[in-house]
């Protein structure tokens, strides 16, 4: 894990390409985004325009590179030594993979919630205050902690036990704590990688409701295996799949279709999308 390692970017031939006009209010614009693990091209040629204030869902079969692409948006792939990112990824108008961009600063604006709830082995309060503290905010955190916990719909359940260990919470509560922890640094974007896969339907429902509210303040990208969830919560859906490469036989991920969620689920353009959402996939 070498924080300062520079990820090579290869924007060469794409620099002069015109961005579509829809990119004007885009939070992210990717063109030809491709990720390699060593020599393995895990997912490639992803072109996405992520609109501000919307929820975008990534769906697709296991191993098609949803998490890999998601981790590009806050440069978490920098932490994997073998990972290499090519193509262009603009955050508003900034090239996220520019040499001058500090991944630490990126992650303070683009938060992440992981598949498995991963609260720190600290008190509930200290979990939420962690991000603000490392970003140098001093003084009383009480108000910030309360707003963040309220934002994650957890305040009423934990307000009497803020100094108790976060590990004593239920899985669903832990995941909402992780959401509170992520929004405590007031990010611009939240990346959520299967945030409900370890939770029961009730906890899942609570978090889905929460996402609907958080949309007002954050742009959300969510990876999910739950088709209903994608249909319920998201405005736009990107369908990825993995197909065997003729030359090498390796299964490489690609973006098949990206459209309004209503279109993807009612009238998809690609038959692979339709096969997947109707459950007729492989």
């Amino acid at each position: 894990m070498n924080e300062t390692r520079v990820i090579e970017t290869n924007r060469g031939d794409r620099d002069d390409e015109q961005l579509p006009s829809s990119a004007v209010n885009s939070v992210f614009t990717t063109r030809g985004l491709t990720v390699y693990y060593g020599d393995f091209r895990a997912v490639g040629d992803v072109d996405l325009d992520i609109a501000e204030g919307e929820i975008t869902a990534f769906i697709g079969p296991s191993g098609c590179g949803k998490s890999t692409i998601l981790r590009c948006f806050n440069r978490m792939n920098d932490l994997i030594d073998s990972a290499r990112v090519e193509g262009s990824l603009l955050y508003h108008d900034i090239d996220l993979y520019d040499d001058a961009v500090d991944p630490v600063a990126v992650r303070r604006r683009i938060g992440m919630v992981f598949q498995k709830p991963n609260p720190f082995p600290k008190s509930i309060f200290d979990n939420v205050a962690y991000g603000p503290r490392i970003s140098g905010i001093r003084g009383s955190m009480d108000e910030l902690v309360e707003t963040s916990l309220r934002g994650a719909g957890l305040w009423d359940e934990v307000k009497d036990r803020l100094d108790k260990s976060a590990l004593g919470l239920s899985g669903g509560q832990q995941q909402r704590l992780c959401i509170a922890r992520a929004i405590a640094v007031s990010p611009d974007v939240l990346l959520m990688d299967e945030p409900c896969s370890a939770l029961d339907p009730i906890a899942t429902g609570i978090i889905e409701e929460l996402m609907g509210e958080m949309k007002k303040d954050y742009t959300i990208l969510i990876v999910t295996h739950n088709m209903q969830q994608a249909a319920r919560v998201s405005d736009r859906t990107a369908f990825f799949t993995a197909e065997a490469d003729e030359a090498t036989g390796q299964r490489r991920g690609k973006l098949v279709e990206y459209d309004d969620t209503s279109v993807i689920f009612s009238n998809p353009a690609d038959e692979r999308t339709e096969a997947y959402i109707t459950g007729r996939f492989g």
Binding site: M76, A105, V106, R109, M112, F114, F120, P121, I134, A182
Partner: peptide, 11 residues
């Protein structure tokens, strides 16, 4: 998962 969580918050 602990270090990932912290990196994800911009540590």
């Amino acid at each position: 998962s602990l270090s990932d969580g912290a990196y994800g918050l911009g540590a």
